[in-house]
């Protein structure tokens, strides 16, 4: 009987404990912030016009010095992966709630806050650079907020002729004489499954291991993501030399505004989906 009492007390205490920790986690979901740091290698990029002295300059593997005046990209299809491997999608079917334009000129856009993230310990984050073909239709009725944000005069993240969004938009200058460079990417996929389809899918799925687990619950963690734009010209997949030849192989590489010559930039920025699934992205820290 004495033993029974002991066990009973112990059990009650254990229950109390469990319910306590449950109270902390169970009912609670919390915010999770993705903080983007756009860099050349380890230096945060400062934008600037052609003659800017303060703009961050970078030199590519091919020896071309360059700096940017504009830097934007779209992220969407965010998924968090728990310790047990299960995926928690974050508004993946709603661009208004689950996609964002990251714009280096707008500090607020660099921190994307995910709200009501279920409490759990997350080991991995997945997201898309760009937008999946089935959502990439400039549907103003379905996603009015994202349409307005992407189409704003100071953002211009639409490829009107392709009826889709721009996925990245980089404007800048290269070589010592500061020639203009302008790299845009986006998808041009048309057609229905089973029938004739055409075009290039520039969406890239990114998978990043977290440096330590992000524990959502009583705290609202922050995941710091580095986007290293040094990789744009000096990537894991392609080493690009900007040249203004008019032949079909070197067509307008400093001015990519079509699917022509686009994919090598896409693969450098977002990986090729097979042996490179991180592209220019990496997680530098998790703050719990």
């Amino acid at each position: 009987m004495q033993n029974f009492k002991k066990y009973f007390i112990a059990a009650t205490a254990a229950f109390a404990f469990v319910s306590c920790s449950n109270d902390d986690q169970n009912a609670v979901s919390n915010n999770l912030t993705l903080e983007f740091n756009n860099t050349f290698k380890n230096t945060t990029i400062v934008l600037g016009d052609a003659a800017s002295a303060s703009a961050t300059a970078n030199t590519s593997a091919a020896g071309q010095v360059h700096h940017f005046s504009e830097l934007k990209y779209v992220i969407s299809n965010i998924r968090l992966v728990k310790e047990d491997g299960s995926e928690v999608p974050y508004n993946v079917n709603d661009l208004d709630k689950g996609a964002a334009v990251i714009d280096q000129s707008k500090t607020a856009s660099l921190s994307y806050v995910l709200t009501n993230v279920p409490s759990a310990s997350y080991k991995l984050i997945k997201f898309g650079l760009g937008i999946k073909p089935e959502q990439n239709t400039l549907d103003q009725v379905r996603f009015p907020k994202f349409y307005a944000a992407a189409g704003a005069n100071d953002t211009q993240m639409m490829w009107e002729w392709g009826s889709g969004y721009r996925f990245t938009k980089v404007e800048g200058f290269y070589d010592t004489d500061n020639k203009a460079m302008s790299i845009h990417t986006g998808s041009t996929v048309e057609g229905t499954a089973g029938a004739y389809t055409q075009g290039v899918n520039a969406y890239r799925d990114i998978t990043l291991n977290l440096t330590t687990n992000a524990v959502v619950g009583s705290s609202a963690p922050k995941i710091k993501i580095k986007a290293d734009f040094d990789k744009m010209l000096s990537g894991k997949i392609n080493t690009i030399t900007l040249s203004t030849g008019t032949g079909m192989n070197d067509n307008a590489t400093p001015n990519v505004h079509t699917a022509a010559q686009m994919v090598k930039f896409v693969d450098n920025l977002g990986g090729n989906g097979t042996n490179d699934i991180s592209g220019m992205f990496s997680v530098t820290a998790v703050e719990n």
């Binding site: 008019t246 079909m248 307008a252 990519v256 079509t258 022509a260």
Partner: peptide
């Protein structure tokens, strides 16, 4: 040739060099 950088002919859509 139209030298506007938005022009690549059919390659604008397909990204295929031979369609330039």
């Amino acid at each position: 040739l139209n030298t506007n950088s938005n022009e690549a002919g059919r390659a604008r859509v397909t990204g295929i060099t031979a369609d330039y």
